[in-house]
Write a protein that binds this DNA or RNA. Structure first.
Length: 353
DNA sequence: AATCGCGACAACCGCTGCTGA
DNA sequence: CTCAGCAGCGGTTGTCGCGAT
């Protein structure tokens, strides 16, 4: 009988999203929460199909997304998890809360695949340290001694966890002042930073700020709306950059005199990330609606975020880390036992998602 | 300076699975 | 139980930027 298309192809815009569209979408999601994507185009006036809106949100606009280079630990995790789970990018992404499945997929296809192929070419099948990666990479094959790479996998995951934990502990003592170095476009530093320092707020705003700046440069288009929006963008970009780059004494960003058209965006970004940490909205001077707050608490992945604006979240992050550690311990156990019974591991992991 | 090739990434497409009527 | 509607997922494509020639 054939499914009808998800949207009317006629009059549906395709291609890259403009900052205006992003703002419309973000504003809408702020107000109504993510979900019910079908109604988003009609309610927002966006000439996009619902799918496109959802994708844009989940892959780009959603708070808590980390962009930029992948760290070595992330890389390792991806390689291991890909070996374990195959091309189940969503499942893999659930282990890297700040990365989207699309991001991981792209990174795999553009970087890791080649890297592993290179390693494969260099290494002889029996001795190379990374060989197990390749073995898993090809088909999750069982042709290698499972105990060997299973132990390696366990070690790597523990190392990643330990590094993260130590980084958090360290950062606790440093009052999160390093955020000052995370100015726009400093992707090269990313590998050298502990993951938690890339707060979702900063990244989210930086994403948009960068996008807006790019738009400002590339498309000074005529028209009243655009001109007005451009003024907003310019102002906001600066504020966003300042916020992302400033030290952490400010309790929030909603107090900043932002253009009206961005008030929601600002409050949304700061509050949603905080909301995901179950921090009182009043505490941070945010104006997220209870519904939206609840929605984001549910919607957000457990992420290491919003640590730079408030001392409380880091405790929560630690709590999450430690609590999840117990859960994570389960995961690790499963990772360990995976080689013995991949199905059990897999079903467990899927259940957790 | 111009052109070409390649890499990176955002976005699209089609399929699958879930859910509610 | 069936089916329509929807969200999510993975593969693929299109576009842009950058370096090499």
């Amino acid at each position: 009988m054939g499914r009808p298309p998800c949207c009317d192809k006629i009059g549906v815009k395709k291609g890259p999203w403009t900052p205006e569209e992003d703002i419309m979408l973000v504003s809408y999601v702020q107000e109504h929460g993510p979900g019910n994507w079908r109604s988003v185009p009609t309610n927002t006036g966006l000439l996009r199909c619902s799918k496109s809106c959802r994708l844009r949100w989940t892959n780009y606009l959603r708070p808590g997304i980390k962009r930029g280079s992948f760290t070595n630990q992330e890389e390792k995790m991806i390689i291991h998890l890909q070996a374990l789970l195959g091309n189940r990018w969503a499942a893999i992404a659930s282990y890297l809360p700040q990365r989207t499945d699309n991001d991981i997929k792209n990174y795999w296809n553009t970087h890791l695949k080649k890297k592993l192929k290179k390693l494969q070419d260099q290494a002889s099948p029996d001795e190379d340290d990374c060989n197990h990666h390749q073995q898993g990479f090809t088909t999750s094959s069982n042709s290698i001694p499972k105990g060997q790479w299973e132990r390696k996998l366990q070690t790597d995951i523990h190392m990643a966890k330990r590094a993260l934990y130590e980084a958090l502990s360290l950062d606790n003592q440093e009052s999160f002042s390093n955020e000052a170095t995370t100015a726009l476009g400093d992707g090269d530093d990313i590998c050298n930073r502990p993951p938690h320092q890339e707060s979702s707020y900063a990244w989210s705003t930086k994403n948009i700020a960068r996008l807006l700046e790019g738009w400002m440069k590339s498309s000074p288009k005529p028209g009243k709306t655009k001109a007005e929006t451009a003024a907003c963008f310019s102002n906001v970009s600066n504020k966003m950059a300042a916020t992302a780059g400033s030290s952490t004494s400010e309790g929030g960003v909603t107090g900043v005199a932002t253009p009206e058209c961005f008030d929601s965006l600002f409050s949304f970004n700061s509050s949603s990330s905080d909301a995901s940490q179950s921090v009182s909205a009043d505490e941070n001077n945010v104006n997220l609606t209870p519904e939206t707050s609840a929605i984001f608490q549910e919607e957000s992945k457990p992420s290491l975020e919003s640590s730079h604006n408030h001392p409380v979240p880091i405790k929560l992050i630690e709590k999450w880390l430690l609590e999840d550690g117990s859960a994570q311990g389960l995961q690790d156990d499963y990772l360990m036992s995976m080689a013995l019974d991949e199905d059990v591991f897999f079903s467990h992991h899927l259940d957790r998602n």
